[in-house]
Design a protein around this nucleic acid. Structure first.
Length: 517
RNA sequence: CGAGGCGUAGCGCAGGCCGGUUAGCGCACCUGCUUUGGGAGCAGGGGGCCGCAGGUUCGAAUCCUGCCGCCUCGACCA
């Protein structure tokens, strides 16, 4: 793996001190080349996104990490509202019997459910501490929701009588629990935060359109907000959501060449309507089962964010998403300098905020500028401004780009907020293009089993476009042989037929294989 | 759930084989002075049930037994 290091100067010289010293690679992180998963874990911790908690498999999301998640929530929520969805909240607990009403659904989740069996503790008669009171056993055990289809559809039964009640377009922001044996920060934790949309429709076509619409919203969000290029498509039967007729997904490629499912949208058919007896009277007063969708993205997107853009100096947050887009660092020696410099920093900040930017002046007196540079670099703030006594005199400010690690000196006399805004837009575009270029160079069309194996065994395996005979058996054999799975069957307007790389049987179109998270 | 590794200050570790004053080091923290344009320097200072429980011993961080927890790699997984 090759990764550029160190600050360079950018732009033409426009000031007498236009050659700030370049910086050596910071020494705070393991490099990606050295150990990719150490690098990932260290970013999570050192950028103060999250840390391991006292509870096995669960993490504490720290304020900076949560601020990023809140930005994701805000932007997605606006997109949901703009397409007619409303938020609601359903219980954390699901009666055990609900889960088993849809056969595929329960089979998919049974192995990772946390179960509440008692409702009371009491003092341990044999010593100190408390024990579960055996007298307080629940008549029916409660499952901590791994997803909410069952509780929601049992509720929808009461909400839907007529075609006039449809469509029902509900979303909830919630936590869910899936008892994972092996966890990784943000990518797979026992408890995680997400949103789950659950919609009910009068017709199949409408439900399918909803599932597709939401997939497109996720794709737009990933590409425009997170600057993560994604592939859209349908999941194979093996990868399909438990209880769905069809699962759509967006898949992103991480820097280590593994795929990450970044969002899913499911067409549930009438499976849950039948399981929970949700019917409506159509215009002809005939009873019909309701058609359903569900769709979700989770805090896993934080993992996608980290592994798409970040470098060996730390996190890189795209400007549209960044809770802090611009950090301003005052530089001074004496108290008298400090007053003037800090005042000017706040002045600059106010102008930028007036232009609609999210700005922080880091005037913490207990830390030195160099420390702050590294800190905000680790945290991935897109632009850093530094202002010292010399800049004050010259009416200049130093501007450093996190994505390219370049810096230059900008004149404060002009409409600099416009310049800053332009730079942020450029950073957003650059990040997307860089990720897209990476994906392109790590996407391989293969036509033989030998090529397939060679591609999947590469240091950075990437996406592999190959023909597949459409059977789960073949998919399973390919996975056994290579660890690669079908990430997505792309939407193709003109599918190109061929022969399966594994079985040699006829194939309708190429599908995307990859090793995945 | 399998295999390996690790639990000693907030974090990262040394010490352990070969038991013996007051358990050490780096970072972080506190105080003071000097510093401040890429994680500052010096001086002083605080902080430990050495994972838990039992055993051996005059004496255990160190040896023995059991337990618990964490990490890595597999298995599993929407």
């Amino acid at each position: 793996m090759f990764f550029a290091q160190g600050w360079r100067n950018f732009g033409p010289p426009n000031c007498e001190r236009n050659n700030p010293p370049p910086m050596a690679k910071n020494k705070f992180l393991t490099s990606r080349a050295e150990n990719y998963s150490d690098w990932y874990n260290e970013i999570v911790k050192k950028a103060e996104l999250a840390e391991n908690s006292e509870v096995r498999g669960c993490m504490v999301i720290k304020p900076y990490g949560y601020a990023i998640w809140e930005r994701m929530q805000r932007i997605l929520d606006d997109m949901f509202k703009a397409t007619g969805h409303q938020n609601a909240y359903f219980p954390l607990f699901i009666p055990k019997s609900f889960l088993s009403k849809e056969a595929d659904h329960v089979e998919g989740f049974a192995k990772e459910c946390a179960v509440v069996t008692h409702y009371r503790l009491k003092n341990d008669p044999n010593g100190k501490g408390v024990i579960v009171d055996p007298e307080a056993k629940l008549e029916e055990e409660l499952i901590v929701r791994p997803t909410s289809e069952t509780i929601i559809w049992s509720t929808y039964r009461n909400w839907i009588q007529s075609y006039r009640d449809l469509p029902l377009l509900i979303n909830q922001w919630a936590n869910v629990v899936r008892w994972e044996l092996r966890t990784r920060m943000f990518l797979r934790t026992a408890e995680f935060l997400w949103q789950e949309g659950h919609t009910a429709h009068a017709t199949e076509a409408e439900a399918v359109a909803e599932a597709e619409q939401m997939l497109n919203i996720y794709a737009t969000f990933a590409e425009q907000t997170l600057a993560i290029p994604v592939l859209r498509g349908v999941k194979s039967e093996r990868e399909r959501f438990a209880g769905a007729l069809n699962t759509y997904a967006i898949e992103a490629l991480m820097q280590d060449g593994k795929a990450l499912q970044a969002g899913t949208s499911h067409f549930l058919g009438q499976n849950f309507a039948k399981a929970f007896d949700v019917k409506f009277a159509n215009k002809d007063n005939q009873e019909e089962y309701v058609w359903a969708t569900s769709w979700g993205v989770s805090t896993r997107l934080m993992g996608a964010l980290i592994m798409t853009h970040s470098d060996d100096n730390g996190l890189i947050v795209p400007p549209v998403l960044a809770p802090i887009q611009v950090v301003i660092i005052p530089i001074y020696r004496k108290e008298e300098e400090k007053v003037r410099v800090v005042e000017k920093c706040h002045e600059v900040s106010a102008i930028l905020q007036g232009a609609g930017l999210r700005v922080k002046v880091d005037d913490d007196d207990t830390k030195k500028p160099g420390w702050k540079f590294s800190e905000w670099e680790l945290k991935g703030v897109p632009l850093r401004l530094a202002l010292g006594p010399r800049d004050l005199e010259n009416h200049k400010i130093e501007v450093a780009r996190r994505d390219t690690l370049t810096k230059e000196v900008m004149d404060l006399g002009v409409d600099f907020s416009k310049v800053i805004k332009g730079l942020l837009e450029e950073i957003q575009t650059t990040l997307y293009q860089k990720a897209q270029a990476f994906r392109e160079t790590h996407t391989h069309r293969v036509d033989s089993w030998e090529e397939f194996q060679a591609a999947i065994d590469a240091d950075i395996p990437g996406f592999i476009l190959a023909h597949w005979d459409g059977t789960s058996e073949t998919e399973e054999k390919i996975q056994e042989a290579t660890k690669a799975t079908i990430r997505v069957i792309p939407f193709e307007e003109n599918p190109e037929p061929g022969t399966c790389v594994f079985s040699g049987k006829p194939s309708r179109q190429r599908v995307v294989f990859a090793k995945s998270y």
